[in-house]
Amino acid sequence: MASTKDPFEFQEFEEAGSLLEADRDAVTISIEDEKPRQAPGVSPDEEHLDSDDKTELLSGQKKSTPFWTFEYYQRFFDIETHHVKERVIGSMLPWPGKNFIHIYLRRNPDLYGPFWICTTLVFAIAISGNLSKFLTSLGKSGYKYTPEFPKVTIAATAIFSYAFLVPLALWGFLLWRNNKIMNLVSYSFMEVVCVYGYSLSIYIPAVVVWILPYEWLRWCSIVVALCLSGSVLVLTFWPAVKDDHPKVIIAIMAAILVLNSLLAVGCKAYFFSKPEPVGTVAPLNEGTKTMPATLKPV
């Protein structure tokens, strides 16, 4: 059914994507630099091309398809393999002065990455938590292996609510602050969701490391993952709040970091609890204590 002459719209999108790509090589740092660059000293041909590109992109953005149509959601999946790769790697390697939204998203936030990263993380946590429990209780008498399937549901609830409700709250807060104090930088909701989704990608390798039943190794990987994803979030949202009162800056950065570490430590405590000598009931009790803490801010 792969007919090559299918008049599908992605042809146009693909072109826009490749133009964006060409742009990316030219522009060095941020979106704001792009506007003045185009005014002086561009050859007429190039200017024509650029303005074409501009109008095409603008029309692509302005074309407001209602949210119940399929095309509306297709915008969020207008992405290619190498973009996803770059974004995942970019979210794992924060660099001072590098803003994830400006460098990688470039006004084209996608839902593909956040959704599939969250789904992968859900199953990674459930499966490796199960494996680690199996490894720690291996050889003990009276232990019977169980797949613990319901944990998938709990992991899904925790992670998806973190990845979508926290961005919603943060976006609302930024919008409110933006009305009070004029900020140069404002992010759309999809951009915030996208940053949060990609910032979770570092936890996937971390969770796989947690299979090994060494507590120090687990805490090391938690600290590393927390530092990386936390600094990506802080670096990204810094420009949006930096003109605000110092108290607000501290509060919002602290909230971002605390929520992030709550998710990591909560998952560690619930899914990878130390085997208690009493039996298999103990981790469950511990879990009921820690889970509300994970879900409370959400």
């Binding site: 059914m1 792969a2 719209e9 297709q74 969020f76 999946f77 207008d78 992405i79």
Partner: peptide, 14 residues
């Protein structure tokens, strides 16, 4: 849905 949103040419039920 994912493959349709990414611009696949295959139909839903296929």
């Amino acid at each position: 849905l994912n493959s349709k949103l990414l611009g696949g040419t295959i139909s839903f039920f296929q």
